[in-house]
Amino acid sequence: MVDPLIALLIGIGVLFASALIFWPDSGLLWRLQKRRELTDKVLIEDTLKFIFKCERNQKPATLESLAGVLSTSQGRASEILAITQAKGLLEMSGKRFSLTPAGRNTAIQIVRAHRLWERHLADTTGFGETDWHQQAERLEHKLSVEDTERLSASLGHPTHDPHGDPIPTSKGDLVSHGGLPLSDLPVQTSARIVHIEDEPELIYVQIIAEDLHPNMIVEVDETTPDRIRFWSEDREHVLAPIVAANISVVPLVEENHVQDIQGIPLDTLLVGEKGKVTAISPLSRGVERRRLFDLGIIPGTEVGVEMVNPGGDPTAYRIRGSVIALRSSQARLIKVDPITEEEQEISQ
């Protein structure tokens, strides 16, 4: 029989080692997999995508910035540039490089695959906002043109990715989202978020933590060099200008604006109170959103609060004659117009 102390230590060692190897997202196995995926093909495609974005934003693409984006050395980056050029996807003139038509097509296909995959993750899986970009970064290199086409068809040919970026058409046309940075929005104007930049991740995470999402309505209260103070739906946000600059907005035309912003969250109603649904926040998306529609929760539906779980969540609502419990995380995203006692009596 093995000495129990030794066995215990070996056991702990084995547990520790397997955690080190198999831990999702940071284990050795995962890192190895990621390194193996980083082939020349992937690096070339990332290069094309980077130069494409630089050209669109009219920023100069330099070797240093390319090496930074690919997270490799400058030597390796120039090696990749040379291969890309030899394939006829890239033209160099002195220190500047630009895409050939073939290179631009490849880049647009990658962008299309990326944004479609993000749409797919947002609509048909349970992955959260912060996982989309990482996964799409890997998948964009694996989807062939046919795969991408099939994906687009299965999603109903969506026009925008979940961040609000337009998805290039199969013909390669790419419209611009045409917004201005939230940091440039004049005070006291309302605007609709059309795009949230998902890179760099550090800033994106901050925006997501604020529960901001394309199609939400915002109104700026105060703009100073240190902070932007603004309202969205039911709460106030304060962001640094550098973060707010990654949110693009389009100012609202006056008449649209009133109807969109009305209503209080359903979870603020108390037992016995009733409300009429005015809108479902864009934060509720994909299958979750469709489920609410399936239950008959659409603008105009009357919802009454029936009872609350002893622990405070979920709450049961009377919806179109049946009693259905929803969690507060869902009810929060349903906006209602409270129905007062008098109105109830009149309708009866």
């Binding site: 349970g126 992955f127 959260g128 419990a325």
Partner: peptide, 17 residues
Amino acid sequence: RTVLKGEVSTFNLELPP
């Protein structure tokens, strides 16, 4: 939080009469 993170998650619970 790990392997099932990507599966779709929704909630609703009908309380029949």
